[in-house]
């Protein structure tokens, strides 16, 4: 056997671990489709169709094949990136529908991810600077409440205060429909529309990131190397930022994968409040019109991206911290 470096073996092992998760998602979704009352033909033809047409459709869609063959073709189609066509929107491919929307959602999610990471680390560091102090206590109370607030409700409250009452920010949408902006002005326009939804998404995340940063920092600050730094006369700021924080960042990195999943979930719901033209709007219309292929495509997309995000996080973690490769 060829000698393989430990790094490659680590990557391979992680890849192998992601396979059962994706496999389960595929099986689970397939089982759901099979269990669901009525099949694709019922959905397409409705109640009025005659038997011959229905039989033709069934064989055309290969629904008369044995179940494992159907599963094989289901997986095969997915692997080729074929998510099927929408029942409702005149046979538009699902992949196309999703493709149109995905940029807006990504913009929102990535903004929130970056924003909450930066601010969360900052808040967490401040709390760890004076643990059990007034700021720390305030922060933990706020995060307790922030966790209990449903994002869509917070969104409505923010709209009430910052858009409807004060008129500072736009209520809805991603661009101003009444104005034609180009270049920088267009970017500024999108940014203005981005403020509220990104804030909603960030707030629930902030609580989490700042807690993890705080506890990570407190652990690191009690270690010997920080004592050494302090003994050498490093300022408190330098001991925290220069020495302890880099090590305390490991758990913060670790949760990015999980957070991406959460953020996508929250984003979908938040988007609907703000009329943000992302996946959320698509999801909403698909679920209300029971457009199964679109729903399925979205769920698959999100589930698989969460698994992938976790995989990437694992790999990054192993790269930053060689100790993790041992497990």
């Amino acid at each position: 056997m060829l000698p393989v470096s430990s790094a490659v073996r680590f990557v391979l092992r992680r890849l192998v671990r992601a396979v059962p998760a994706v496999g389960t998602i595929l099986v689970l979704t397939f089982v759901l489709i099979q269990l669901a009352p009525g099949d694709a033909v019922d959905a397409l033809a409705g109640d009025g169709g005659d038997q011959a047409t229905n039989d033709y459709l069934r064989s055309y869609l290969q629904l008369d094949r044995p179940i494992w063959e159907q599963f094989a073709s289901y997986v095969g189609n997915l692997l080729r990136g074929d998510l099927g066509v929408s029942f409702v929107q005149g046979g538009t491919p699902v992949a196309e529908l999703i493709g149109e929307r995905v940029t807006a959602t990504l913009l929102l999610v990535v903004t929130a991810l970056v924003l909450s990471s930066l601010a969360g680390v900052l808040l967490g560091a401040l709390a760890a600077r004076w643990p059990y102090g007034r700021f720390d206590a305030a922060l933990s109370t706020v995060s307790l409440v922030a966790y209990a607030i449903p994002g869509f409700w917070l969104a409505q409250l923010l709209v009430l205060v910052f858009a409807i009452r004060t008129g500072w920010l736009p209520v809805q949408g991603m661009t101003d429909a009444r104005a034609e902006y180009t270049g920088l002005a267009a970017a500024a326009d999108v940014a203005r529309h981005l403020v509220l939804p990104a804030a909603v998404l960030s707030i629930s995340e902030l609580a989490l990131v700042s807690r993890v940063t705080r506890s990570g920092l407190l652990t690191e600050l009690s270690r010997d190397y920080v004592r050494t730094a302090r003994a050498k006369g490093a300022t408190e700021r330098r001991s925290i930022l220069g020495h302890a924080l880099p090590n305390a960042m490991l758990p913060v990195v670790t949760i990015i994968g999980t957070r991406l999943g959460l953020l996508l979930t929250y984003a979908v719901v938040t988007e609907t409040v703000f009329g943000w033209p992302g996946l959320g709007a698509l999801l909403l219309s698909a679920s209300q019109s029971r457009d199964r292929p679109v729903l399925l495509g979205l769920v698959l997309l999100v589930s698989v991206s969460v698994v992938l995000a976790n995989l990437v996080t694992d790999l990054v973690y192993g790269w930053i911290d060689p100790r993790a490769r041992q497990h």
Binding site: A21, A36, P37, S303
Partner: peptide
């Protein structure tokens, strides 16, 4: 443990959405 990990990887909200979309 492996089974648990798999369940943990599935975004619950979306799964719920799918079930509601399919089964009413």
């Amino acid at each position: 443990s492996r089974t648990t990990e798999v369940f943990q990887a599935i975004p619950l909200f979306f799964l719920a959405l799918l079930v509601v979309g399919f089964f009413g």
